[in-house]
Nucleic acid binder design. Structure first.
Lengths: 340, 340
DNA sequence: TTTGACATTGAAAGCGCTTTCATGAATCGC
DNA sequence: GCGATTCATGAAAGCGCTTTCAATGTCAAA
């Protein structure tokens, strides 16, 4: 395994010029640069990352801290998110460092060791203490989602509120007046935003939101199944369902079918679709109408954002909220009572 | 951000002693050790990882290389696997480095830079070239699963063959003679092993395996749905189904229900269960009978294995094949034709 | 011919840690 | 009470790279 010294000796040059050549400094002669590059390639030279890091002070990696009892890692969405992240990082020769650790001070510990240049925060809580801590430490970070803190921070988020407002409106236009919402966990911001959009649409249409139609929980298949059971056991059950994820929608349809209800004739469904690669909504028995926002995109976008941020971009320029498509397929139709 | 020199100056000691104290050398006086530890804690000192790596030559991290167009990251199992891995690593203050890269030489590039001390290989192909490369490079690595190479390498695997043999036997004992197998991708070793176990059981019971009853594909929900459709469109459809994953089983049950078939009266189902945290088989409408092997355990075990391996354990001691439980729940019963 | 600007390169000082080797001081056996 | 150990510490070399600063040589301008 050749090192810089070997390479320099081999070329009869100083380490300095070789290093400069490899890092494409303009001050080094074009022909020597060529020579160096060739020799490096020939000797299969790879600069030692630790040495370079030590010299430059930059790690070339970004961290994701996974609390031990994390529901992040219980989340199939995380895989697709990671996928987007790593492909985008690969192009810049950056890595992502996954570390399991307990408590908020893990971030501090981690950043201070210089292992990473910054962090990516997933599933932020409403008043997430990590934001304050990292801001104070002046460590670059990008949040996937948003929080309720009066701090300026970089984030990437989708328009959850308008997405669910639009979806609700569509159902209302189809004549549905009792719409169930199988939402995500109540302490998640995205769930709160979706609830806002849903409520907003109802209120705008002079309907009084019925809290018994709204459920909150971790977005598993079973939750979809159970919550649907609960909703339809009510005296006046909904005629339409809004689901927070495709897995939830899957559970919901399973329950509906068990109970002899058909989609969309008896019940319309709109689900939020993160475009998980192992669960495609267009291939559902009844192709699902969805609010569509590929979570993979979040990964690739956040990669770009944190790179910009590390290069000194203003935080205000690293705040992105992207729109969500509403795709109508076969799981939505006119409400039963609105049909002749 | 204090460094070693600051700390040493502050204590009136040399960097050497402080370093030794922090690394718990026995040669340093107990009271000074105390003093150092306290001061370090007080000054919130964290040794710089790059410097330490450079000095020791060890990275304190293991790598997972994700090919760009990877189906690893399309796999919900991967999340649970990672979860196990990181929690086990956290206890040893090790990290995992995720890197996106194309081609096999990515491993070489990656190891040579000293970013990681070794690798974890997922979804090995039958004659996986990575094994040979890494063996030659003498870089520690543990394979999740097994390959068809005549090299000695460290691995962790579950007894796929006996698991599916047992499951098939159970179904045979219940009187089923036509058993569908919704297997994983045909180029995956685990799928091949499962097929072996399945075939073995049939042959042992004097049945001729019918290739039209065996399907291979990526283990998605849709695959379960479609393949089940195909199987039951046959002139003599199966009375039992063996599924390679819970997502596949989910798709299968969806299809069966659509086609008006009930589980287990019309069709018995046994699925392999990796115990994904977002999809629990015990909560299926009809609780699933399963061959059970938590993939999370694979993560925690592999973490231990690679640590041992790096410490110089013999490869022969780092080859683990764990048994799989067969759990009978409500999705299996006597074959229809075997009932009076 | 002298001078200054420019283009290339090298020497060497770090980056922050570990670890070998040397050095005193204290302790022991006899 | 003296050499031989043991204990505890410090000085300093090095890990492999980057980067500042100085030192060449070259060439056009004066």
């Amino acid at each position: 395994m050749a090192n810089l010294k070997d390479l320099a000796d081999h070329l009869g040059l100083s380490q300095a010029t070789v290093s400069r050549a490899l890092n494409d400094y303009s001050t080094v002669n074009a022909t020597t640069k060529q020579r160096v590059l060739q020799a490096a390639n020939h000797l299969n030279y790879r600069p030692n990352t630790s040495a370079r890091r030590l010299a430059t002070g930059r790690a070339g990696a970004y961290g994701i801290v996974l609390p031990k009892a994390d529901n992040l890692l219980m989340d199939p969405h995380f895989v697709d998110f990671l996928s987007g992240l790593t492909t985008a990082f690969a192009a810049h020769d950056l890595d992502i460092v996954l570390t399991g650790a307990e408590g908020i001070q893990a971030y501090q510990r981690f950043a201070n060791t210089g292992k990473v240049d910054g962090f990516i925060l997933s599933s932020p809580k409403s008043d997430d203490p990590r934001i304050r801590l990292l801001s104070e430490m002046e460590v670059p970070f990008v949040v996937h989602g948003r929080c309720d803190v009066d701090l300026d921070y970089a984030f990437y988020d989708i328009r959850n509120r308008s997405a669910f407002r639009d979806a609700t409106n569509l159902l209302l236009n189809l004549g549905h007046t009792r719409i169930g919402l199988l939402n995500g966990p109540s302490d998640a911001i995205f769930a709160r935003d979706r609830l806002k959009g849903y409520t907003e649409a109802l209120v705008t249409n002079d309907l009084i939101p019925d809290p018994t139609l709204v459920m909150h929980d971790m977005m598993t298949e079973e939750y979809g199944y159970r919550a649907t059971g609960t909703l339809f056991a009510q005296p006046s059950p909904p005629t339409a369902l809004l689901c927070a994820s495709t897995l939830v929608a899957l559970g919901a349809t399973r329950r509906l079918r068990r109970d002899g209800l058909t989609v969309p004739e008896d019940v319309s469904i709109i689900s939020h679709d993160d475009c998980l690669s192992s669960l495609k909504t267009e291939n559902f028995s009844v192709p699902l109408s969805v609010t569509r926002a590929p979570i993979r995109d979040a990964g690739t976008e956040i990669a770009k954002l944190i790179i910009d941020l590390s290069r000194g971009a203003a935080i205000a320029d690293i705040q992105k909220t992207v729109p969500v498509d509403l795709i109508v397929r076969a799981s939505t139709c006119t409400a039963p009572q609105a049909r002749s």
